[in-house]
Measured scan of single mutants.
Amino acid sequence: GFPHNFQETTYLKPTFCDNCAGFLWGVIKQGYRCKDCGMNCHKQCKDLVVFECKK
């Protein structure tokens, strides 16, 4: 597997964290999205993600 390539992201529609399944709250920059596989997560979850990037 590969490490994720997370970038701070502004979501335009309701989005949930792929790590904890919690809602990504806020208006802008609600969470992080992996540029390579599209995984979404909270800032506090991005260092805890157990799934490797599937590129």
Rank of each mutant, 00 (worst) to 15 (best):
K46S: 10
N5H: 13
G22M: 15
K46D: 03
V50H: 07
K46Y: 11
D18L: 13
I28H: 07
G22W: 08
F6H: 05
V50N: 07
C53S: 11
Q7V: 07
Q7W: 05
H4P: 00
G38F: 11
G38M: 10
C41R: 08
M39I: 09
G26E: 03
C41K: 09
K13V: 10
Q30A: 02
L48A: 13
K29E: 04
D36V: 05
E8P: 05
K46V: 06
E8Q: 14
Y32R: 04
Q7K: 03
L12T: 06
T10C: 08
D18H: 04
P14S: 02
M39A: 09
K43R: 10
K35I: 13
W25L: 05
D47P: 11
P14D: 04
F16P: 05
N19T: 12
I28L: 06
F16A: 10
W25D: 09
M39T: 09
C34A: 01
C45T: 01
C20V: 00
K46M: 15
F51Q: 13
F6N: 05
E8I: 11
Q44I: 05
E52L: 08
R33I: 15
A21C: 13
W25K: 07
V49G: 09
K46G: 13
F51M: 12
Y32H: 09
M39F: 08
D47M: 07
R33K: 15
P14G: 03
C37M: 01
Y32F: 05
K54I: 06
G31N: 01
Y11L: 12
F16H: 08
C17V: 01
K13I: 06
Q30T: 02
G26Y: 03
F2V: 06
K46P: 08
Q7E: 11
K35W: 07
P3L: 13
R33G: 09
E52P: 11
D36T: 12
W25G: 04
Q30S: 03
K13T: 10
C41E: 04
H4F: 01
H4G: 01
D47Q: 14
W25A: 08
T9K: 03
K46I: 14
H42T: 00
F51P: 11
D36P: 07
C17W: 00
F6V: 11
N19C: 11
Q44S: 15
P3Y: 15
G31D: 02
V27L: 11
P14A: 06
L24Y: 02
C45Q: 00
V49C: 07
K35M: 06
K43G: 11
P3R: 13
Y32N: 15
N19D: 10
Q7S: 09
L12K: 15
F6S: 06
T9G: 06
D18S: 14
C41A: 13
C17D: 00
C53Y: 07
Y32M: 10
G26C: 02
K46R: 13
G38W: 09
G38I: 03
T10N: 05
I28C: 07
Q30I: 01
N19F: 14
K54R: 12
D18M: 10
M39N: 08
E8T: 06
C34L: 00
H4D: 02
N5L: 12
P3T: 14
T9N: 11
D47R: 08
E52Y: 13
C34R: 00
K55P: 04
A21R: 14
G31S: 03
L48E: 11
Q7N: 13
K13F: 08
V49F: 13
N40M: 10
C45W: 01
Q30E: 02
K54P: 02
Q44H: 14
Q7Y: 08
V27W: 07
R33C: 15
P14E: 01
R33A: 08
K43F: 06
T9Q: 11
L12W: 05
N40K: 08
K35A: 14
Y11R: 07
N19E: 15
N19W: 14
F23Q: 07
D36A: 08
P3M: 15
